[in-house]
Nucleic acid binder design. Structure first.
Ligand SMILES: [Mn+2]
Ligand SMILES: [Mn+2]
Ligand SMILES: [Zn+2]
Ligand SMILES: [Zn+2]
Lengths: 138, 138
DNA sequence: TCAATAATTTAGAATGATTTTAAAAAAGAA
DNA sequence: TTCTTTTTTAAAATCATTCTAAATTATTGA
């Protein structure tokens, strides 16, 4: 008996998001979501697709990553100027960033706690809180 | 009677950092440090200099911002891919980032407290912790 | 003071990431 | 099938940043 889990298949995610399950989008969705959470750049995903025999242009990889982000399947994480990382875990969580290797890593669930929040400026509201813990070897 | 304060003048900062106090570096140092803390991009600083009658190339603005960062007079803050912000407060502190306007703002001293830190991966050490609180209007 | 030397600045080219354009291909509807 | 809309794509364009190589400026040490 099969347990019903949401978004088990890439095609379901795309349908739920109102995006046509095209060959390219399906292939990229599989690479992104089929093996647990990932943190990846457009270039990395494009290389991975190409090496895996998926014929897709870099422009489409960018389009797709941006579309997935718009519909909430991904989120963008800013760790250093110049490179955009996409995170397959779109829920609120924080990151280690290895400054030496450029690797982005999730910080486990509740191991970072913000015990107090600052007063937000007049007429402003908090959208998201990003904590990046920079780490290096040794 | 004059109170002796460190780095009151731009020239002192440059000397202390072992950087020749050239016309361009002095002008940029004044713009950066003479009116309290600032968060600024290379383009912004270049425009400000140019409008203020200081003749300096964009390449030199980049060179200078990078040099100042290397010697610890500035630090770089990553808030969104594509743009590098430089912060005249190089000590540890956190930021509000206005996603609508691109304005970067200090969070007052101790109003953000990380009450617990994550276990750092094997053979790794924490370099810095950046907290960015994204805010928007209304 | 003055040339020799070293550091700095600069215009413009180059790079790298990302977006745009406009046309071809694919997908969905009828 | 056709018709219509969406998607993909190659190539060009854009934007931030760095590099190159030559010109300028600052420092050194007779
Ligand atoms: Mn984007
Ligand atoms: Mn830099
Ligand atoms: Zn993550
Ligand atoms: Zn700051």
């Amino acid at each position: 008996m099969k347990t019903i889990r949401p978004f088990t298949h890439a095609v379901d995610r795309l349908n739920a998001a109102g995006l046509r399950p095209t060959r390219q989008r399906l292939a990229l969705a599989r690479l992104l979501f089929e093996d647990g959470n990932r943190h990846i750049t457009a270039e990395q995903l494009h290389r991975e697709a190409t090496e895996g025999g998926v014929k897709v242009s870099l422009a489409t990889v960018y389009n797709t990553l941006n579309q997935f982000t718009e519909v909430g399947l991904l989120r963008e994480v800013a760790v250093e100027a110049g490179r955009a990382y996409f995170d397959t875990n779109a829920t609120a969580h924080h990151h280690f960033f290895n400054d030496d290797t450029g690797e982005l890593l999730d910080i486990p669930g509740d191991s970072v706690v913000l015990s107090s929040l600052p007063d937000v400026p007049e007429n402003m509201v908090i959208g998201a809180i990003d904590v990046v813990v920079h780490i290096r070897n040794k």
